[in-house]
């Protein structure tokens, strides 16, 4: 079973993603801030990381920067899930070496397929 780590401070967004992915065979982990997210990523070595760029303790961009510098995690795809305007979000994701970008609000019909695609490319 593939493991997905969601780093997201907003409870409503966290619950929405959990609900949308519930019918699918994934193990979901959650961190509400950047520091917990990095710790969970190191401990659990997930197959995919979904990260909100606006986190309360450390900017999501900085967390991505850190995760990308950890050898054990260098092959784990990181996808920015963000409320930034689409063009800024894509630019941000590209500049920081994210493997993709999904803008909020997520499209609940498309989201499972988007996630599956990122996991397949892993």
């Amino acid at each position: 079973m593939k493991t997905i780590l969601q780093i997201e401070d907003n409870l409503a967004n966290k619950l929405l993603i959990e609900r949308v992915l519930e019918p699918h065979p994934y193990r979901l982990l959650h961190a509400a801030d950047g520091e917990t997210g990095v710790a969970l990523a190191l401990d659990e070595k997930p197959d995919l990381i979904l990260i909100d760029m606006g986190l309360p303790d450390i900017d999501g961009q900085t967390v991505v920067t850190l995760l990308k510098q950890i050898p054990d995690l260098e092959n784990v795809p990181i996808v920015a899930v963000t409320a930034w305007p689409a063009d800024t979000a894509e630019k941000m994701a590209r500049q920081y070496g994210c493997d993709g970008c999904i803008t909020k609000p997520i499209d609940i019909r498309l989201f499972p397929a988007q996630i599956a695609a990122f996991l397949e490319n892993d």
Binding site: A12, D33, T82
Partner: peptide, 22 residues
């Protein structure tokens, strides 16, 4: 204050939540 502030920014044009330390 942080809890209230973060709620004011849930649908903001630029996401920028804070924690107590920040």
């Amino acid at each position: 204050l942080v809890d209230a502030y973060n709620q004011t920014r849930v649908d903001y044009v630029v996401p920028m939540p804070m924690n107590v330390a920040r």
